[in-house]
Design a protein around this nucleic acid. Structure first.
Length: 646
RNA sequence: GCCGCAGUAGCUCAGUGGUAGAGCGCGUCAUUGGUAAUGACGAGGUCGGGAGUUCAAUUCUCCCUUGCGGCACCA
């Protein structure tokens, strides 16, 4: 007999071979029906799997958070069965749970098409309707391998062979006697328990085991939820995210465009470029304040230079190369600014008194990114970094990193990103530099990260070969995370490019070098920013801050005069004198997400006022302000965060 | 780069083996209207590029190109 302890502390004696389901049934039929998963001695457990000794037992229903993973996992299995029934020449591989759903990777000569989804979903529903019992079976490793080989599932056989230690048993889960798959479990007691709240979403290629040297499998993505309401809510969220897509907004708000002839490069339109400039001006002021010296370095450098820096050897494939007919020279377009910055450092003799030297550049870089990697502004081939390199002594690293963290927090807060975490990555296996130097640098970065007040996540072994690093991750308005800023120590480049300074002792020393960026690239950061605010920029960033819209033509002169006054106050103003109704104009500029629409009609003209309507505040009555006061008020509202008076 | 899907007017999209259509936008005219679409008329397309099949291709086939969704990559 076994002792089973329930969550309320009560105990039951049951016979060997009893399962959580049996216990549930002995309590009530409805409980047994509801229970789709158990927790036995703290471990998730199939409800039909017999206890293996005295146990604590908790029964879980579909509403429990653990159940959602189960649902998604079972959805993946039902998908796999459906696919194999419809397409018998298909082999299964793996099918894990992911955020919001699941996927399953299949191997099949002919491709699937999204047109097949309807049939597959139909078949999945049939499998659910058939309510096939899901059984757990324990197999010996070698038997399982032989079994999968025999039925032609070579991927499954390979997985077992690779990941299961010799002698260890494995578990298979079968849907009645129709279908079975290698799986750790647990699973639902039967296919009928799977809620019909799933949807197949995407079809994609995926390399076997994530290695591009391997064959490509076909991955089917699906989403699955505990009920239809949650599914609908999820689909709604996807639609909302789509509306924020910076590529759509970039077009709708006339910020930029991309075109075939310049793959991966951006054509910034007046409004988008205004945004870019405002951001750059802001960063320039902040940089100046934090003690950076701005520089500008060449776009093209001779091949031999890149050979010396080591980039030619390591990144040649991703570099754009240029040559000229008259000369037998190969130049490379710079993929990064650091080697150029070392040249500025190296020019003339540097003393320890010059350190730390912070060289900043809005450096325009080009990288040949694989075509499949390009994505709107987020991944481009030509971009501008808010790049800087700090040359300092090893002892100065901690202070410099702290200073950088302060600056980064200030900038992110100004742009509306308050949720920031920092990832600390230390020495990888293959690296340059002595362990003593790594110790010192890692320690400096760690201390600075911990002092920053940001949440620190540790990433052991994930540093660059040339030094440890901190990466900064911001969370946006709809909860997505973006890696943006970074600061990295580098022991390699100063060595390769012979950077040195004269120390207090009169001898020559290698400086430490820190690479750092806050935005990363303007292009990408603007993409993130556009999506974060969904195109509705705060006043200081808005490409057009005020539109003056007239109601009738008699007000034209006054509208132009008011615009001139507002522009004198430094505001970005447009005037809409078109022969259209005010409703039409308000609608259009609201769609353009202009922060302030100033309406001008007979009344305002006579009183020399403006009637202000703010974006997102449609219900409130217009605020009527005298023109001179309005200039002052809006000037204050439009001030960048670092120039605000309060 | 790899797998799948797509490219039709400035934008969003419909459509067909017999050389194209809507809405919005744009232009002209009328209307001078008080906070999310005034009306009428008009212009606008080598149906991504090339080749093939066909009497005939925007439509079918192949190649290229670009984009989209993933995978791989991201100094």
């Amino acid at each position: 007999m076994l002792d089973i302890t329930l969550p309320d502390g009560s105990k039951r004696e049951v016979e060997q071979g009893t399962s959580p389901f049996d216990v549930a049934e002995s309590i009530s039929k409805s409980l047994a029906k509801r229970s789709i998963l158990a927790r036995v001695n703290g471990e998730l457990w199939d409800v039909k799997r017999p206890f293996e000794g005295d146990s604590t037992l908790e029964l879980l229903d579909i509403k429990s958070p653990e159940a959602l993973d189960l649902v998604r996992h079972d959805a993946a299995h039902v998908l796999a069965q459906a696919v194999q029934e419809l397409f018998p020449d298909t082999q299964v591989t793996i099918g894990p749970v992911i955020d919001d759903g699941f996927f399953y990777d299949f191997a099949r000569k002919e491709g699937f098409s999204t047109d097949d989804f309807a049939a597959i979903e139909k078949k999945m529903n049939e499998i659910i309707d058939a309510d096939l019992p899901i059984n757990r079976e324990v197999w010996a490793k070698d038997d399982a391998i032989a079994h999968f080989k025999k039925i032609g599932e070579k991927y499954k056989a390979q997985i077992i062979d690779d990941i299961i230690p010799p002698g260890e048993d494995i578990t298979l889960y079968s849907h009645a006697d129709q279908w079975s798959d290698l799986c750790r479990g647990p699973h639902l007691p039967s296919t009928g328990k799977l809620p019909k709240a799933f949807k197949l979403m995407k079809l994609a290629g995926a390399y076997w085991r994530g290695d591009s040297n391997n064959e490509m499998l076909q991955r089917i993505y699906g989403t699955a939820w505990a009920n239809e309401k949650d599914l609908k809510a999820h689909l709604m969220r996807l639609e909302e995210a789509e509306k924020r897509d910076h590529r759509k907004l970039g077009n709708a708000l006339d910020l930029f465009h991309l075109q075939d002839a310049a793959q991966g490069q951006v054509f910034w339109h007046p409004k988008g470029w205004t945004l870019y400039r405002v951001l750059m001006d802001y960063m320039r002021r902040v940089q100046d304040r934090y003690g950076y010296r701005e520089i500008k370095t060449p776009q093209l450098m001779d091949r031999s230079f890149w050979e010396k820096s080591g980039h030619w050897g390591k990144y040649r494939e991703n570099m754009f190369i240029s040559s000229i007919d008259q000369e037998d020279k190969v130049l490379a377009v710079k993929p990064m600014n650091c080697p150029c910055h070392v040249q500025v450092f190296n020019h003339g003799q540097k003393s320890y008194r010059d350190l730390p030297l912070r060289l900043a550049e809005f450096g325009s870089c080009h990288r040949y990114e694989p075509s499949g990697a390009l994505h709107g502004l987020m991944r481009v081939r030509a971009f501008t970094q808010d790049d800087a390199h700090i040359f300092c002594t090893e002892d100065q690293i901690t202070d410099e990193v702290k200073r950088f963290c302060d600056m980064l927090r200030e900038v992110y807060a100004a742009l509306g990103f308050d949720d920031v975490t920092v990832k600390f990555s230390d020495r990888p296996e293959t690296r340059v530099g002595s362990d003593e130097v790594w110790d010192k640098a890692e320690n400096s970065l760690r201390v600075a990260a911990e002092a920053s007040g940001l949440e620190v996540v540790y990433n052991p072994g994930d540093g660059a070969f040339y030094g440890p690093k901190l990466d900064f991750v911001v969370k946006d308005a709809i909860g997505r995370e973006w890696q943006t800023g970074t600061i990295q120590a580098d022991f390699n480049l100063p060595e390769r490019l012979d950077a040195e300074y004269v120390g207090e002792d009169g001898a020559k020393h290698r400086p430490a070098m820190l690479h750092r960026a806050i935005f990363g690239s303007f292009e990408r950061f603007l993409g993130i920013l556009i999506e974060n605010v969904a195109g509705a920029f705060p006043m200081w960033l808005a490409p057009v801050q005020v539109v003056i819209a007239t109601i009738m033509q008699d007000a034209d002169d006054y509208a132009l005069e008011a615009a001139a006054e507002l522009r004198k106050a430094g505001l970005r103003v447009e005037v809409d004198l078109r022969n259209e109704k005010i409703n039409y104009k308000v609608r259009e500029h609201s769609h353009q997400k202009v922060p302030i629409i100033a309406v001008v009609g007979r009344q305002e003209m006579d009183d020399r006022t403006l009637a202000l309507r703010r974006f997102g505040d449609a219900k409130g009555r217009p605020e009527v302000v005298e023109l001179a006061a309005c200039c002052e008020k809006l000037r204050a509202e439009a001030a960048p965060p670092d120039l605000r008076e309060t």
